[in-house]
Design a binder for these strands. Structure first.
Lengths: 265, 265
DNA sequence: CGGCGGCTTGATTCGAGTCAAGAACCGTGG
DNA sequence: CCACGGTTCTTGACTCGAATCAAGCCGCCG
């Protein structure tokens, strides 16, 4: 939120600073996927930035027919679905640089199956779909970045399904938290304290909020977590990962696609 | 398995018959994704057919470094993962025409996170990765078909996550069976009897085998299922879908991407 | 006619959900 | 800077769905 100052004060990266604030994570992701820096900037130019979005607001609705695609720039959002009875399942948390509606983005219409909601206050970027389509034709490496993002998302989804389906609450939550910390880190946010409410954890882990409360206390007693106000802080990351049999490898695949880029473009 | 006779006897499609037996479903899928028939045939020519694969054999292994991509031609397979303790979670069932290793296909190496196993005896096709890459460059519509397949897979995965996370056993199994029947149908297999063992259902629904047994009996008492030997048969599809709040729309998106094809190629 | 893979059954245990009340926290405005 | 009100988290008592264990049965296949 008042994060820009970090960038200005950083002694490490004084050369490049985001033109429009907040776009840097997205830019970084494009470049990490093998895109040329100049091309990335060209794409960024087409992004309209919207900041000051409040927690709990829907960024992408179920009934969406919107004519734009969305990228998360700052903050945290979640992709979720609902049962007819109203209960919610969070499919994925999204971090700065992530495409919010990859699932929708490439499809003209969508069967109201998922929506995206702000978990914290956040900033997003939107791109007109028509323009996005042009850009995809113009910059094959953009399509590559989207492939990569889609594959990563699917990979994460499977891991989470495995955990929800086959692990008890303690491991399930431990794994979820490990994943979020790792993802934050992968976009350069080194915070051990996650901005999640317990209800978010509950809906993501497919547990009741009461059980989440009790389980988190257990994790605290084990010395793996502590509380920072209402937020959970990961104290002993190593042992937490251990408990959850968490292996962050599946989140990496950063330069994996670099080979590809050469062939396609 | 001894299915080819069907094709020959069909009074409806006497004109085109699969060159190599079994490839027809895959061809149909390519065409349905907007690919030109001639191009599809060109691609099929590069596919090596392997038949006679037995149930329970792994088609794609965890440790895969294989130099080829795989397509299911006949039969049924499943994409699954395992916990360190050995317990299995089935992420998705695959039907004729499906890419078995989409998740792996585009990535040079893979963090041993998922494998594919034959649920019935089956026939697969394999394509050398190098050749696939060439084909992708040569035929943009192939990439489109793969996008579509990937998005569909992700969509199914989310739906299943929602059900596993938030529905009780009865609905969960009902939904799973509805999904499989609908998918079979979408590739032209109209069988109400599914080739799944109860252990497959258990691993897919994230339930114990014992509980699946009891729950299936319940579904039989409700008149929604019956048994055909050891296999479950869907008797009252409508009421089953009703019970599970199943809405097959998310499986369709068949011609959704046709618009796209025009722009990209 | 075995034999074995797969399904059933009953008894028991246990993890997790629900309900309901209360406490802690947080942002807001005076 | 503190008081207030809603949100979020906590606790305890109770219930319930699902897992586990352990036999036994069925039916398919050699």
């Amino acid at each position: 939120m008042d994060m820009p100052s970090q960038f200005l004060e950083s002694s490490r990266a004084p050369l490049q600073r985001p033109k429009k604030q907040g776009l840097s994570h997205f830019r970084q992701k494009l470049v990490a996927s093998g895109m040329d820096g100049g091309d990335a900037d060209e794409i960024l130019r087409r992004v309209e930035v919207i900041s000051g979005i409040r927690r709990d607001r829907d960024i992408v609705a179920f009934d969406r027919t919107a004519k734009h695609a969305t990228v998360l720039l700052e903050g945290m959002t979640c992709l979720y679905g609902r049962l007819p009875d109203g209960s919610r399942q969070i499919f994925a948390f999204q971090h700065p640089g992530d495409f919010c509606d990859l699932s929708h983005a490439m499809l003209p219409a969508t069967s109201r199956e998922a929506a995206v909601c702000a978990v914290t206050g956040c900033t997003i970027g939107i791109i007109d779909r028509g323009i996005l389509e042009q850009l995809l034709v113009q910059y094959p490496s953009l399509m590559l970045a989207m492939w990569r993002a889609a594959m990563l998302e699917a990979s994460i989804l499977r891991k989470r399904m495995l955990n929800i389906g086959r692990q008890p609450a303690l491991q399930r939550i431990a794994h979820l938290l490990c994943e979020q910390v790792a993802r934050q880190e992968s976009v350069g946010i080194g915070a051990a304290t996650l901005p999640l409410r317990q209800i978010d954890i509950a809906d993501a882990a497919a547990l009741s909020i009461v059980h989440v409360s009790r389980t988190c206390q257990q994790l605290q007693k084990l010395g793996l977590l502590s509380k920072e106000g209402h937020r959970m802080k990961v104290v002993d990351r190593k042992r937490l990962a251990d408990l959850a049999a968490f292996d962050g490898d599946y989140l990496d695949m950063p330069q994996l696609l670099l080979r590809w880029q050469v062939r396609l473009s």
